[in-house]
């Protein structure tokens, strides 16, 4: 199963980006193999509807879970509609590698 984690940078040492729509990078994690791939969020500098565009990317990537710091109303309704689980982490300053470890149970 694939999961997206919003990240501040393009490797696992980056921290979790607390914003969903305007995060810097999406970390796509394969929960079975533990492999990661980072893609840039093309919506981050959009003047409006960044959340919707970011949700579009998430849906196109076919992931089932998104981990971030918060979700706006439009992004939430779109992700809900396509059955994608949203997770809001309480501790926003976490390193991506630690987030991966905790969700894969390592």
């Amino acid at each position: 199963m694939k999961t997206i984690i919003t990240a501040n940078g393009s490797d696992v040492n980056a921290t979790l980006d607390p914003r969903f729509g305007r995060c810097e990078f999406f970390c796509i994690l394969d929960e079975e193999t533990g492999e990661t791939e980072f893609i840039e969020n093309k919506a981050k500098l959009q003047s409006s509807a960044a959340g919707t565009t970011a949700a579009e990317t998430v849906i196109e990537q076919g992931v089932k879970k998104v981990i971030s710091g918060d979700f706006g109303p439009k992004a939430k309704s779109l992700l809900d509609r396509f059955g994608i689980q949203m997770v809001i982490l309480k501790d926003e300053g976490q390193i991506i590698a630690n987030v991966i470890n905790s969700i894969t149970g390592k």
Partner: peptide
């Protein structure tokens, strides 16, 4: 120009946000 339209081909979703 105003990012008001959302179209997601793989899931056949298309809508326009009137507020944008």
């Amino acid at each position: 120009e105003y990012n008001a339209i959302t179209v997601i081909p793989p899931v056949q979703y298309a809508s326009i946000a009137p507020d944008l």
